[in-house]
Amino acid sequence: MALSQHTIAGTVLTMPVRVRQADVHSAMFSVSADAAQAMIDYSGLRVFQHRPGQAVVNLMLARYLDGDLGRYLEFGTAVMVNPPRLYGGPSVGSPSSSLAEPPGSTASGWRALGDAGAFIHHLPVNQEFTLEAGRTIWGFPKIMADFIVRDGRRLGFEVSADGEHIATMEFGRGLPVPGLFTSKPRTLMAFSHLDGVTRQIPWGMKVSGVRGAMGGAKLELGNHPYARELAALGLPKRPMMSSIVSHVDMTFGDAEVIGAG
């Protein structure tokens, strides 16, 4: 079976796209499920509830150091969602039908978190090539942004777009997590929505050098529209937990349309 290819800015990318080295700093927040659902209702997906009335939102800084899309920085807002029934199966939806009430998983609770998908709601980046590739191939909502990163014992960064401050975050080092719990490769499912189309994307990941903490991160918000959306979730607040992953190897497969409208 021939591998699919995409041409971005004159460069041919053969799927899956590979990230050979990245590091990721992330913080996991518990927020109102109703507020999170209102924020992502346009996608047709339903938020995952780790406990009744509470959803999970991850904020992360990824530094891509070696990969098919080049070197760049990325700030992501990922809302954990319940995958629709046809997760991994045939496409559903048409121009006249959406996933406004998607059939599928209604799992909840911490034990089910590993089976939830990650809906990418915000994705500012600082390089044009990855912006075009992300929007064209996967429907990721990438926008151009400016980053300031302070890399020391405590990593801190600021991200802004169109001259407006989005967020400032600072991470502590946390404690080492044994590789026994983190070294197994995983395939997650990411979800995106752009120009009225919802997609799912297989996201392979292998990590090492993981550190974690309860809390462990500070967040400040600015005045950019993205910041106002996060504030509507009740942020900033103390995260449930945070993590630092010093080595991430990732692959992104072709996107599959699961809803349009």
Rank of each mutant, 00 (worst) to 15 (best):
E256S: 05
R63D: 06
G163N: 02
I8E: 01
L221N: 07
E132A: 04
L69W: 09
A27E: 05
L180M: 14
H50M: 06
G109S: 08
R51N: 08
F75I: 01
A112G: 05
L175C: 10
L233C: 00
A100W: 05
A36S: 09
R173I: 08
I166N: 05
D249R: 14
I148R: 03
F181M: 15
W110C: 00
D41E: 14
V12F: 01
V31D: 01
G156L: 01
P83H: 07
G215Q: 12
L235A: 08
G139W: 12
R51T: 12
G10S: 13
L99N: 06
G10E: 14
M15R: 04
V12D: 08
G44P: 09
S96M: 02
S91W: 00
S96W: 04
P185K: 12
S30R: 02
S183M: 09
M28I: 13
V12P: 11
S94L: 02
R51M: 12
R85H: 00
L65I: 09
T187Y: 07
H247R: 12
H6M: 03
M189L: 13
T14P: 07
R186M: 15
M28D: 13
M60S: 15
Q21E: 15
P176Q: 05
H224W: 11
T168V: 02
D249T: 13
G174I: 07
V245D: 01
L180D: 07
A255M: 06
P239G: 11
P83N: 09
F191L: 06
T77E: 01
I148A: 11
S43Y: 05
T7N: 00
A231F: 09
A55N: 09
I258A: 04
A227C: 05
T198A: 04
F140P: 00
D249A: 14
L59E: 10
Y226E: 11
G259S: 02
S32C: 00
P90T: 08
V257L: 04
R186F: 02
A190E: 05
K184R: 15
L175W: 14
M144A: 10
Y42K: 13
Y72C: 05
P83M: 10
A33V: 06
D41Q: 15
G117C: 11
A190T: 05
T106I: 02
F191S: 03
L221Y: 13
R85S: 00
Y226I: 14
E170C: 10
I137S: 01
E74Q: 15
P16I: 12
L155S: 05
I201E: 03
E256K: 09
F48I: 04
G139Q: 08
T182S: 13
D23C: 03
Q54N: 09
A227H: 01
A118Q: 03
L221Q: 07
H25F: 14
V210R: 04
S183P: 00
S4T: 11
P16D: 10
H50V: 14
R150V: 04
E164L: 14
